[in-house]
Write a protein that binds this DNA or RNA. Structure first.
Lengths: 139, 139
DNA sequence: CAGCATCCATGACGATACTG
DNA sequence: CAGTATCGTCATGGATGCTG
C-alpha cells in the first residue's frame, strides 16, 4: 500500500543535469505532486474547495461525474498530504466537511498557473492538433 | 478516437461556479493539459528539451527508465500538441532531433511553477503524510 | 449522510521482436 | 539510428451492494 503508480522497475530515472535543482531525483519527490495534479479529480476538488468548505455529498453533487469511491479515495489522499482538512460534525444524519488547508491553497495557486496557461493557449494547441491530424490523414 | 480518459459517462461535470472563468467546461479543454502534465514522461521530456534540442536516443539514454515505446508515443503527443518540433536529419544512420517550440516553452514555464512549489513544500507534505500514517496505525 | 468492500472492464505501460 | 507492431500485465477507476 501507499504506492500507486510509482516507479517500481529497475528503471530509476537518473536525470540530474538540467538547468534547475535536483527536481526528479531518482525517487522523485515532485513526481507525487505531478501525479496528484494529473489525476482525474484532485484538481477539481481543490478548485471547488477554493471557494470554501464543502460536505462530502455537496462535492459529489457538484462534480457528479465522480463515483463516491473516487471521491472518498481522492479526499483521503488530499487529507493525507496535508492539503485539505476533514472535519466530522456529529448529528443525526452525520456530516463531514472538507476545507482547504494553507498547503492546499498554495498548491491551488500553482495549479491555477497551469490552468491559466491552458485557458490562454488551448486554442493554439487545438490548431496544432488539427494541423497534425490533417497531415496524418494525407499520409 | 481522440478521446482518452475523458468523461464518457452521462456524468458531465457541470462545475461552473467557482471563482474563476469557465475552466473545466463539460468537455474540459484544460483537462487535456493536466493529463499531459500528469503522465509519467511528458514533463521529463519537456524539461530535458528545455536545455536544447536532443535526438531520440539521447532522450532515451537521459531518461533511461523509459521504454522506446513510451518515448516515441509521448514525443508524438507532444509534437501533435505543437509543443515540440520533430526534425529528421537524413544520413547513413538517420537521426531525428526534437526541440521545444514556443508553445512548449510556455508550458514548461507553467510546469516549473508547479515543480518549484513542489520543491519548497514537499517536506511539509511528507510530514503531513507521516502524521497521517501514524494516526492510521494507531487506529 | 458518509463511507468501505468487492467485482469487473478498460487501458496504460513494459518487454520483446522486427523494419527502413 | 529511429522507430513500429504485438503481447501480457497490472493498476485505475466505475458499478454495485452493505454499514454506522
Amino acid at each position: 500500500m501507499a504506492q500507486e503508480g510509482t516507479f517500481s522497475t529497475p528503471g530509476t530515472v537518473q536525470v540530474t543535469d538540467f538547468s534547475r535543482g535536483d527536481v526528479f531525483a531518482r525517487n522523485c519527490p515532485t513526481r507525487q505532486l505531478l501525479d496528484r495534479v494529473g489525476d482525474k479529480w484532485s484538481v477539481l476538488i481543490l478548485m471547488l474547495l477554493g471557494g470554501g468548505g464543502l460536505r462530502f455529498n455537496e462535492l459529489k453533487r457538484r462534480i457528479d461525474g465522480i463515483s463516491q469511491k473516487m471521491l472518498s479515495q481522492t479526499l483521503r489522499s488530499l487529507e493525507r498530504d496535508g492539503l485539505v482538512e476533514r472535519e466530522v460534525h456529529p448529528g443525526k444524519p452525520i456530516s463531514v466537511s472538507y476545507t482547504l488547508l494553507p498547503l492546499g491553497a498554495g498548491l491551488l495557486g500553482a495549479v491555477r498557473m497551469m490552468t491559466d496557461w491552458a485557458e490562454t493557449n488551448m486554442a493554439e494547441v487545438a490548431q496544432a492538433q488539427a494541423r497534425y491530424d490533417a497531415m496524418e490523414e494525407a499520409a
